[in-house]
Write a protein that binds this DNA or RNA. Structure first.
Lengths: 181, 181
DNA sequence: ACCTGAACACCGTTCAAGT
DNA sequence: ACCTGAACACCGTTCAAGT
């Protein structure tokens, strides 16, 4: 890749991250391009779809979340570790308004970059869930897919009620009481 | 109201219902107007916002749901009645793609017609929840607000995965196990 | 090889003119 | 009093021309 192209790529990522955090995951792409000092066409050349751009922005956060999951996988209490992990996912989704919705929309479209982005999260969650189930702390008939869908749905609901800071916690607790095996 | 205005009002409601059912709650308003044989300005005159139009369309469904809640309020098993009611809400949201999201977005804006539209639903749910709690079948610390948020979130998640017809059922069951007092 | 931005498409919303 | 639809605004996306 040419030096100027690489530079544009980096600036686009930086500005996209800022714009998504400030204005939500549906921030105007035109503004991302403007802030990065490039034409809108250049943005599309580097990231053909919004999902591609979101995906690229979240690679960094994704690495952090996966790191956290490896820590939790060695915790003493498998069930608490799983719950901690789900809380971390909700907190992450809460940092970008509209992200929970984007992830949800993308989840059933396997060709989307954003859908692939949550595959490693799913795998990490599966390990934590498996441990909690083997320890007999979580029912065997709970699937990681259902659990992550529900987590995402809770994040989305919480996002709509920013004035109720504890909503996500309460909804998650309500849900988790149903996990106990 | 002038006769032609009343007629336009009715035709707009009929076509809006059809368009929302076919294309989702974010169907182009221009098309609703076209199908109703009126100018787009007339649609805006009768329904200044999309939420007003959605609200008007759902008044009929709302009456049916309230009727159902009164039947359930006399059922023998208060907890099953509550669950039945939540299932009915999810089924209703599922009939119009995007409705769950619209309801969720509107829920924190008290001035929206759509938010007021769910007030009677909330009141009906509160009666059913109260009966189940008095019978000792549901924990006392569960609120109808949280329960409806969660129900709506589940409806939204289910809508994104139409290929998994049982998703809503499973997520609701998972949640409901946490209710038992 | 990459970038630019004008151009096009689409939809929401308003409002001056018409009936 | 109500209706109409052109006009404007906004944003996403493409692509011919430029470097």
């Amino acid at each position: 890749m040419r030096a100027d192209a690489r530079r544009n790529h980096e600036r686009l990522l930086i500005e996209a991250r800022a714009a998504f955090a400030e204005q939500g995951a549906d921030a105007p792409l035109e503004e991302v391009a403007r802030r990065a000092g490039v034409g809108i066409g250049t943005l599309y050349r580097h990231f053909p779809t919004r999902a591609d751009l979101l995906n690229a922005v979240f690679q960094e956060e994704l690495a952090e979340l996966l790191h956290r999951s490896r820590e939790l996988a060695e915790a003493d209490a498998p069930c608490s570790a799983l719950v901690e992990w789900l809380r971390a996912l909700i907190a992450h989704a809460g940092e970008y308004r509209g992200l929970a919705h984007a992830l949800m929309s993308a989840s059933h479209d396997r060709s989307s970059a954003l859908a692939r982005c949550s595959d490693p999260l799913r795998a990490a969650g599966e390990r934590l869930l498996g441990r909690a189930q083997e320890a007999g702390q979580v029912r065997a008939d709970v699937s990681i897919g259902d659990l992550m869908q529900l987590t995402n749905a809770i994040a989305l609901a919480a996002e709509q009620c920013p004035e109720d800071a504890l909503l996500a916690d309460r909804l998650l607790s309500l849900t988790l009481r149903g996990l106990k095996g």
